[in-house]
Design a protein around this nucleic acid. Sequence first.
DNA 1: ATTAGCACTCTATATGTTAGAGTGCCAGTA
DNA 2: TACTGGCACTCTAACATATAGAGTGCTAAT
Lengths: 351, 351
Amino acid sequence: MANKPAQKGLNERAQHLLKVLVSRYIEEGQPVGSKTLAQSANLDVSPATIRNVMSELEDLGFVESPHTSAGRVPTIQGYRFFVDSLIESQPAGHQALFDELQAQLEQDLNTHELVSSVSEFLSGVTRLAGIVTLPKVQQIRLRQLEFIPLSERRILAILVTSEDEVQNRILDVHRDFTIDELRMLSSFFNEQFSGMDVTQVRQTLLGQIRNDRDHMDRMLNVAMDMAESLFTPQANDEDYILAGQSNLMGKDKLSNVDKLRMLFDAFTQKQEVLRLLDQCINTEGVQIFIGNESGYQIFDECSVVTSSYSIAGKALGVLGVIGPTRMQYDRIIPIVDVTAKVMGAVLNSRT
Amino acid sequence: MANKPAQKGLNERAQHLLKVLVSRYIEEGQPVGSKTLAQSANLDVSPATIRNVMSELEDLGFVESPHTSAGRVPTIQGYRFFVDSLIESQPAGHQALFDELQAQLEQDLNTHELVSSVSEFLSGVTRLAGIVTLPKVQQIRLRQLEFIPLSERRILAILVTSEDEVQNRILDVHRDFTIDELRMLSSFFNEQFSGMDVTQVRQTLLGQIRNDRDHMDRMLNVAMDMAESLFTPQANDEDYILAGQSNLMGKDKLSNVDKLRMLFDAFTQKQEVLRLLDQCINTEGVQIFIGNESGYQIFDECSVVTSSYSIAGKALGVLGVIGPTRMQYDRIIPIVDVTAKVMGAVLNSRT
DNA sequence: ATTAGCACTCTATATGTTAGAGTGCCAGTA
DNA sequence: TACTGGCACTCTAACATATAGAGTGCTAAT
């Protein structure tokens, strides 16, 4: 009566055993046998019974055996079930650590430094690779815009954002501008758009163009053209900062040179990694990709644990850690979770 | 009469044999035995004779034996002698490659992109890690300087250099400045210093301060203060761009995980690597560090081949490759050499 | 449903054995 | 004196073989 199959033919005992098995394997890195398991799980059953259960679990695809006499190892599906249903995350015991992080971040850092700090924090605490994307520029507010003439037909545009971050872009334009003209332009922009976030600016611009472009004077028309190229998102908006990648060296499966090399190359190329991270940005809470679940071959032997960080409810970027599939999920998950929250809080407080 | 000891007791035949031995070892990666060597060197002597010579070479510290029956391997001293006296560098056969490089660099790249391109070129052609320092800012000419007020007591200074490179620095100042004041300041600076290189600017400033600071009006005094913090070299002047570090993975001795990991960490920390590179900047021609010669433990199993690149005779930075001690010096050395020259030429042509 | 018992499988480890490569030295030769 | 052939010696890498231990799956008994 009590031991009815709980879900998908996995009764409570089987779940408990799976949990203990995965935990032990994560700790030891060795296949777990029936005898060991019988001792670890406080179940008062014999190894033979365990063996029967293991056989079930193997049929269902949660564990597998490297070879005949070698105990069992969790499969990706096994990890997945473990992470989804069996884990009880320690509600972040490391309060002191996070206080320290927060204190550090509240110093006068620019965005780049802040992102680096967080990435290094993640890598340091987890002893894995930490990764943090730069905040999406579109969602950052414009504070100031200035133009400086460089040479004939080249203008340097300087955007100062609410984060004290400065961006430079060189514009190639169709004709010369006098200094006065440039001054007019910049004060026009500053009056109109200062304080708006970049997406808003873009939308406003597009709206104006549609409505009454014909009625505007030539000067304004020029301004519109400029602004368009200025507020078009640029490739370098999409970037991340990685820390502690060397932590991945010599980690069981990853000690395979070729695998590791492909992974490191992917970190340098960035696009593939970015595509994966982009998938996470609009997801609430912690997201986990185990092994090939991500769909990217490079991460075959890896797991990626991410969470998005946000300001005023708007997700600005993604952070997380990358490590071997055999990682301490129960410890890592709350760390990533809380780190994202701390980062969001710090970003919010400096608005 | 002909076979007199040439130098340090190394007669011509011994030198020839050392050369063949090192070449073969670089190619094959296997200890070279007397029989093999007797065949490879066209000397018409028996293996027994070779053995006698090897014994000498071993006494002198040019070769060593991993174990009793394993042939000989060059020592660091052996490589050194090989590189200094025995090598005949192929005078850069790869003309086509360099033409391609030059063409690529002559596109409209900013400094950062240019440096990256060169680093990737080096890594691609040599299949080792390429490294290129950013040009020392001090030796770059100032083109334009602008100030933008950010908030009370904070001013954004923008330096545009002759390379179309833009640098931002935020200045914390003691009092507020009106926009007009800032305008005055910037036009003053531009009149005085535009076209000078940053070192010159600094020197001029120091001179003026010494001479007649008291006689200047308050405004100029302020300007001087600003300029001082503005033209003080900053830490980020010292930086490099590394490419193809993953090429170092799985390279004989470097397959040792711990060694490789230390090396990768050093690349991330940068300071140690930078200190080594800095030593090279004022050296004419190609410089080579073999194994522990560099004095840095991290490079124990590595060789570093560098050359400085310069503009109008002034060395601006250093480029080179990093690889295992067992690298094809005869091929690598001219590549590094010519690359430095091409880079210098390109930088020169865009003045 | 659970278990003890047993035969079976597979790995990891140790132990030999052997072939080959290479050396160093000695005595002979030009 | 400079070279060489010959030989005993050493060491490694590769292969074969044996053994202990871990763990399984099945069966028959509870």
